[in-house]
């Protein structure tokens, strides 16, 4: 298999430096407005500042993948004596919460790293440097990429065996 070079984009979050201003939310949503900057609305931002002021928690979190179903359990983290609420460090746009969804349509939001810009917009406007941007290249095996459905089916086959998966699909299709 061939090796290829892949650009890895990294936003580094120094949560201790965050002053909770939410400028990043304003700017992300303004940049993604159509036309650009014609409106803003932090609820549409792909970065959200998770805040619990008295607990000293200001945590910038970026919208990750959409998930159709919530996790089967929850995590609650305690770090440096601060207790983070459930799901606080998760990036998913998930049915269990209204974070990372378009407020009107409910469609999932996902951080696109402001593809095409010199640096992510949120990073550019965070003047205190709580979020910073790095790029690096990694060598990767050029594996054929699986489509979304293939990934899902592969996961099921891994777990239950291909035979069982095929039988189930056949049964389901009969039921209509």
């Amino acid at each position: 298999m061939a090796t290829i070079k892949k650009k890895i984009k990294v936003i580094k979050v120094d949560a201790d430096k965050c002053n909770g201003c939410r400028t990043c939310e304003v700017m992300c949503s303004a940049f993604h407005a159509v036309p650009k900057y014609s409106s803003n609305n932090p609820a549409r931002s792909r970065i959200q500042i998770i805040t619990d002021r008295l607990e000293d928690i200001w945590l910038p979190v970026f919208a990750g993948e959409y998930t159709a179903s919530e996790c089967s359990g929850r995590n609650r983290y305690v770090m440096n004596g601060k207790e983070y609420a459930e799901c606080n460090s998760c990036r998913a746009s998930c049915p269990a919460r209204d974070l990372f969804k378009e407020p009107d349509s409910g469609l999932p939001l996902k951080c696109d790293m402001c593809d095409g810009e010199e640096e992510p917009i949120c990073v550019k406007w965070c003047l205190v440097g709580a979020i910073t941007y790095e790029e690096r290249e990694e060598e990767r095996q050029d594996e054929p990429r699986l489509g979304e459905m293939e990934i899902g089916l592969q996961a099921l086959a891994d777990r239950h065996g291909m035979k069982k998966v095929l039988e189930t699909v056949a049964r389901m299709s009969k039921k209509g």
């Binding site: 002053n19 909770g20 201003c21 939410r22 400028t23 002021r53 000293d56 200001w58 003047l127 205190v128």
Partner: peptide, 19 residues
């Protein structure tokens, strides 16, 4: 002073969380 904090959309931070 636990942390210096700002108001909405401001790059300076004149307030503080006091513990």
């Amino acid at each position: 002073v636990k942390r210096l904090i700002s108001c909405f959309n401001c790059p300076t931070h004149c307030g503080a969380l006091i513990s």
